[in-house]
């Protein structure tokens, strides 16, 4: 039995790797680091303040829906009041259905500046820029959104486009998209629906 790390007696002598290999690797990697390929990107969306979220110069960012005047600015009621950090059933705001992971109010709403939101590092975020907060957990959606594959785009496929930030489509308190009443079903064609009459469109042979 050999001790750990020791060499078998008859093993060929290990050749030491020439040092120039290590030097070569460093030399080769240096331009890559310098070019930014391996370097940490600066001003990416995960850092605040970041560059504008708008994907390109031609894009119009549609504003988030206005917040109800009855409840905003929050400071009207909460001014000077110390925030109670304890999770609890609220007496107010019963219209809010909170179904957003395991989050609670003060995970996003700021404890001190009551009209603002905050990131996990306590840096403040304006209500209108709530997307900065969303990207902290949902960073994977940013490239898709920037490319126009997540979220709705309107306008032109070639030319000016309209984009929406997260809260235009998702209720931040309950972000899952809500069901809608579907538009009426097509009128079944004559073979399936005697009341449709002979003039109805033929679908019986549209065997899919």
């Amino acid at each position: 039995m050999l001790a750990r790390g020791s060499k078998p007696r008859n093993a060929p002598p290990r050749r030491r790797r020439p040092r120039w290999i290590a030097v070569g690797i460093v030399l080769l990697a240096t331009p890559l680091l310098g070019s930014g390929k391996w370097a940490r990107p600066e001003n990416d969306d995960l850092h605040y303040p970041s560059r504008p979220l708008g994907p390109d110069a031609e894009a119009t960012l549609l504003p988030p829906p206005p917040i109800d005047d009855e409840y905003f600015p929050c400071g009207d009621c909460h001014e000077g009041e110390p925030a109670d950090p304890e999770r609890r059933e609220l007496d107010e705001h019963d219209y809010i259905e909170l179904k957003h992971g395991d989050l609670w109010c003060l995970d996003c709403h700021d404890t001190m500046e009551r009209d603002l939101l905050h990131l996990s590092d306590a840096s403040p975020v304006k209500m209108e820029e709530s997307w900065r907060l969303c990207t902290r957990c949902h960073a994977k959606k940013i490239p898709d959104w920037r490319a126009g594959v997540h979220g709705k785009r309107t306008g032109n496929w070639r030319g000016a486009k309209e984009y929406r930030t997260c809260v235009v489509c998702h209720d931040p308190h309950s972000p899952l998209f809500k069901p809608l009443q579907p538009k009426p079903p097509p009128i079944p064609a004559a073979p399936f629906n005697p009341s449709a009459g002979a003039a109805s469109e033929e679908v019986s042979h549209e065997g899919l």
Binding site: G148, G151, K152, R153, T154, G155, N156, W157, R158, L180
Partner: peptide, 18 residues
């Protein structure tokens, strides 16, 4: 250069065109 009408009608942004 405009998007088709169905792309603009879709409320969940499921339709993509280009």
């Amino acid at each position: 250069g405009r998007y088709p009408a169905c792309v603009e009608a879709c409320p969940v942004g499921a339709r993509k065109f280009g």
